[in-house]
């Protein structure tokens, strides 16, 4: 379980996160939903120690974040973050060199699944293809959790479909997934739990199926209700 307890973060004088509290369970898909600037990416960065927190605690399976976090949690940022001159084969080798939990077979399976060319250079990939390769680098780690920042933003329809397929496949398996999006409509069938973030605070946390059966509302309905109120 990735657990955030009253996590705060400020940038200069602005409070970006205000006592954010929620948990992403293993074996579940949790979606952080919010408008642009609500602090979604900051939450993910804070989990990865890529930005300091100024209050609260973040724990992964009950332990504070630290060096082990990086093998336990694979982070898929909202851009590829691979030097443009690097060949895809070299980027895979780079990951294999650094990650003891790198799964080479899974990496080749994913490369096949997305139809990616090993000889291509990272800087020459189209946006959709880069997003797929980004996913390969994250999913080929045998991590317990996967966190991904806006995996669907600015990507063509077909790429979006094949990326969405990943969530219902063995590739995710029993891992915990935490992803952010500002556009939940397309994936609302895929997620277990939604965390609505508004101006750096958690406005509501709910189980999607429960809201459908008890209130007859879609995730988008709740999102509109809470975020646009």
């Amino acid at each position: 379980m990735i657990e955030l307890i009253r996590v705060s973060h400020r940038y200069l004088c602005r409070k970006v996160l205000k006592e954010v509290t929620f948990a992403a369970e293993k074996g579940q898909i949790t979606c952080l939903i919010g408008l642009n600037g609500a602090g979604k990416s900051t939450v993910l960065k804070a989990i990865m120690g890529l930005t300091p927190i100024h209050g609260g605690t973040i724990q992964i399976d009950g332990k504070p974040i630290g060096r082990d976090t990086y093998e336990q949690v694979s982070y898929i940022p909202d851009h590829l973050a691979v030097p443009p001159s690097m060949k895809l084969s070299d980027a895979l080798q780079f990951m294999e060199d650094f990650y003891s939990r790198w799964n080479k077979d899974r990496a080749s399976e994913l490369m096949r699944f997305f139809g990616l060319d090993y000889r291509e250079r990272a800087g020459r990939l189209s946006k959709g293809t880069a997003a797929k390769f980004n996913l390969v680098l994250g999913l080929a780690q045998d991590s317990d959790y996967i966190i991904m920042d806006e995996p669907f933003a600015g990507i063509d329809l077909f790429s979006r479909e094949s990326i969405a397929e990943v969530f219902s496949s063995e590739l995710v398996g029993s891992r915990g997934v935490l992803l952010t999006t500002h556009e939940v409509g397309e994936i609302e069938h895929l997620i277990d739990q939604a965390v609505l973030l508004r101006d750096g605070t958690v406005a509501r946390t709910f189980e999607c199926e429960q809201v459908r059966s008890e209130e007859g509302k879609s995730v988008v309905d709740v999102m509109k209700e809470v975020l646009l109120a």
């Binding site: 990865m48 120690g49 890529l50 060096r67 082990d68 990086y70 093998e71 982070y75 940022p77 851009h79 590829l80 973050a81 691979v82 030097p83 443009p84 650094f98 990650y99 003891s100 990272a122 800087g123």
Partner: peptide, 16 residues
Amino acid sequence: IGRDKFAYRMFALPTA
């Protein structure tokens, strides 16, 4: 500042 913003990957590497 690079287009790849490699810092995202570099600082997430499993090492001190």
